[in-house]
Measured scan of single mutants.
Amino acid sequence: ITGDVSAANKDAIRKQMDAAASKGDVETYRKLKAKLKGIR
Protein backbone atom coordinates (compact mmCIF):
# COMPACT_ATOMS: atom_id res chain seq x y z
CA ILE A 1 0.00 0.00 0.00
CA THR A 2 2.81 2.41 0.91
CA GLY A 3 4.41 1.93 -2.51
CA ASP A 4 1.17 2.88 -4.28
CA VAL A 5 0.81 6.03 -2.20
CA SER A 6 4.35 7.22 -2.89
CA ALA A 7 3.95 6.43 -6.59
CA ALA A 8 0.78 8.54 -6.71
CA ASN A 9 2.55 11.30 -4.79
CA LYS A 10 5.49 11.24 -7.20
CA ASP A 11 3.10 11.51 -10.12
CA ALA A 12 1.28 14.48 -8.57
CA ILE A 13 4.56 16.20 -7.71
CA ARG A 14 5.89 15.67 -11.24
CA LYS A 15 2.77 17.35 -12.64
CA GLN A 16 3.28 20.28 -10.24
CA MET A 17 6.93 20.44 -11.29
CA ASP A 18 5.90 20.62 -14.95
CA ALA A 19 3.47 23.43 -14.16
CA ALA A 20 6.09 25.32 -12.15
CA ALA A 21 8.66 24.85 -14.91
CA SER A 22 6.31 26.16 -17.59
CA LYS A 23 5.63 29.23 -15.41
CA GLY A 24 9.35 29.68 -14.81
CA ASP A 25 8.74 29.23 -11.06
CA VAL A 26 12.19 28.01 -10.05
CA GLU A 27 11.53 28.28 -6.30
CA THR A 28 8.51 25.96 -6.40
CA TYR A 29 10.30 23.62 -8.79
CA ARG A 30 13.21 23.21 -6.37
CA LYS A 31 10.91 22.62 -3.39
CA LEU A 32 9.03 19.92 -5.27
CA LYS A 33 12.28 18.32 -6.41
CA ALA A 34 13.42 18.17 -2.77
CA LYS A 35 10.08 16.58 -1.85
CA LEU A 36 10.57 13.92 -4.52
CA LYS A 37 13.97 13.04 -3.06
CA GLY A 38 12.39 12.76 0.40
CA ILE A 39 9.80 10.23 -0.81
CA ARG A 40 12.39 7.79 -2.19
Rank of each mutant, 00 (worst) to 15 (best):
A21S: 05
G3D: 10
I1R: 07
I1S: 10
L36V: 01
A21H: 07
A12F: 11
A21T: 03
R14E: 05
V26Y: 15
N9T: 14
D25W: 03
A20R: 01
A20L: 02
G3Y: 06
G3T: 09
A34V: 05
I1Y: 13
A12I: 08
R14H: 06
T28L: 15
S22T: 07
R14L: 13
Y29R: 01
K35A: 09
S22G: 05
K23Q: 08
A19H: 06
L32Y: 03
M17K: 01
A12R: 07
D18W: 15
D25E: 02
D25Q: 01
L32A: 00
D18E: 14
G3F: 08
V5Q: 09
V5A: 09
A34W: 04
E27M: 05
A19N: 05
Y29H: 01
I13S: 01
A8R: 11
A19S: 05
K31G: 00
K15H: 06
M17S: 01
R40Q: 13
V26T: 09
K33T: 02
D18T: 12
D11W: 05
L36H: 02
G38H: 10
I1W: 13
I39R: 06
D25H: 02
L32M: 03
D25L: 03
A7D: 08
G38T: 11
A19E: 14
K10N: 07
N9S: 12
I1T: 09
G3R: 08
V26A: 07
A7V: 09
A21P: 01
R40I: 14
A7T: 09
I39Y: 08
A7G: 08
D18C: 15
K35G: 01
M17D: 00
T2D: 10
G24N: 04
I39N: 05
K23D: 05
R40D: 11
I13M: 04
R40A: 12
A34H: 05
K33F: 11
Y29G: 00
A19L: 14
Y29V: 04
I39K: 06
K31N: 02
K10A: 15
I1E: 09
V5H: 09
K23N: 08
K31I: 05
V26W: 15
D11T: 08
L36Q: 01
A21K: 14
R14Q: 08
L36E: 00
R40F: 13
I39T: 05
G24M: 04
S6I: 12
A34K: 08
I1V: 10
A12E: 13
V5N: 11
A21C: 15
G38R: 14
L36G: 00
A34N: 06
S6Y: 08
I1D: 08
D25Y: 01
S6R: 12
A19D: 12
A34F: 03
D11L: 12
A7H: 10
N9E: 14
Q16Y: 04
G3P: 09
D4P: 09
G24D: 03
M17L: 04
K33A: 12
A20Y: 02
E27P: 02
G38M: 11
V5D: 11
K10C: 15
M17T: 01
A19F: 08
L36R: 03
N9Q: 13
D25I: 01
A12V: 08
I39W: 12
K35I: 15
K10S: 09
M17P: 00
S6N: 10
I1L: 09
R30W: 06
K10F: 15
V5P: 10
K35T: 05
L36I: 03
A21W: 15
K33Q: 08
G38I: 08
G38K: 14
N9I: 15
G38A: 14
V5K: 11
Q16M: 14
A34G: 03
D11R: 14
S6A: 07
R40N: 13
K31E: 04
V5W: 11
K15D: 04
K33Y: 12
D18Y: 15
R30H: 04
G38Y: 12
K31Q: 05
A8V: 09
Q16L: 14
K23I: 14
E27Y: 05
A8K: 10
G24T: 02
D25V: 00
K35M: 14
T2G: 13
I1N: 09
Q16A: 14
M17C: 03
V5L: 12
